[in-house]
């Protein structure tokens, strides 16, 4: 493909469509200038002040907000939680998610129904899914405790959302539940998988699950990388998963950066400067993961 493309490009090396390109790119540049570039400058400026959401009468405080942020255990806890929740969803996606995608690609009956069941949770509003999860684990009427009591395991019933450990488990389960996107990535790349090495393995008499584990799994390494990075980024984009299930509590034990920022912005106090400083740090983390993703996909293209 590369040789195909480079030939005509060389031919018109002298030609440049720069002027036309600027016209075609101008809507994009406008959006980027306002929503990303200006936003970053605005965050930088605001992060040096003490101000409310009205953004009026800002008081200059220098680097104080960043100093406070470094000392804030809840913020570092939120970043750590983002990484932990991402790890849980990654672990589930590269095992169960991978298996679901392969199993459905082998051609089963009612496949469309299966796809709906596995992909739907990730495509309906997260606020709704998280609310349902919170309801399921409610102490008195939640279906989880009800079920435990009805099968004689009432001792295991507990106030899931009010204890740090169980609350953490609930949110982690929710993140693991929302693996529709990885299943889609695997499904798409399986459809483009070269089948010759599978045929060779079949001739060797390898069994179904051995082929899945020893042949297909390693062949999907680029997809695994895509899955890991997209879930990592998705975790830092997450808000509703926590906000609608545990609200970040108890304490800040299930807080993620999304719910942390959202909570401070809606707190009504003069916390906007402080939150802008936190937002800048979150933005830097997201950009670093983005750059990692760009390098990962670039090597992928090169290796092909």
């Amino acid at each position: 493909m590369k040789t195909e493309r480079s030939a005509p490009r060389k031919k018109r090396k002298s030609r440049s469509d720069l002027r036309v390109a600027v016209v075609f790119l101008s809507p994009l540049l406008l959006v980027y200038a306002v929503y990303f570039i200006y936003s970053i400058f605005f965050l930088g400026e605001t992060s040096m002040t003490k101000v409310g959401i009205s953004l009026r009468n800002a008081v200059d405080v220098g680097w104080l907000n960043f100093q406070m942020l470094v000392g804030d255990a809840a913020f570092s806890r939120a970043i750590l939680n983002n990484l932990l929740f991402a790890m849980v969803s990654i672990a589930v996606a590269v095992t169960i998610g991978f298996f679901i995608a392969v199993a459905l690609a082998t051609g089963v009956r009612a496949r469309k129904l299966f796809y709906l069941v596995f992909l739907l949770p990730a495509l309906i509003p997260v606020s709704l899914v998280a609310t349902v999860f919170g309801g399921m684990f409610q102490e008195r009427f939640g279906i989880v405790n009800e079920t435990l009591r009805s099968i004689g395991l009432g001792a295991l019933a507990q106030s899931w959302l009010n204890e740090p450990g169980p609350a953490f488990a609930v949110v982690a389960t929710l993140f693991a539940y929302l693996i529709g996107l990885p299943i889609m990535y695997y499904t798409a790349d399986l459809a483009a998988l070269p089948t010759d090495s599978l045929e060779a393995a079949l001739l060797d008499g390898a069994g179904t699950f051995r082929i899945m584990r020893s042949i297909i799994y390693p062949m999907m390494t680029p997809t695994h990388i895509t899955v890991v990075l997209s879930l990592l980024l998705g975790s830092f984009r997450g808000l509703e998963q926590v906000y609608f299930s545990t609200g970040g509590g108890p304490g800040h034990s299930t807080e993620v950066v999304g719910s942390y920022l959202y909570g401070y912005i809606n707190s009504g106090g003069k916390t906007i400067g402080f939150t802008a400083a936190a937002a800048l740090i979150v933005l830097v983390i997201a950009l670093i993961i983005s750059i990692a993703q760009m390098f990962a996909t670039r090597t992928r293209k090169g290796s092909r």
Binding site: Y32, Y35, F36, Y38, S39, I40, F42, L43, T46, L233, F236, R237, L239, V257, G258, L261, Y262, I265, I272, T275, A276, A279, L280, V282, L283, A286, L287, I289, S290, I291, Q293, M294
Partner: peptide, 14 residues
Amino acid sequence: LLFLAVPGTAILIP
């Protein structure tokens, strides 16, 4: 592509 994964909460204030 750099801005492919900007969290909405991070640019909420601006």
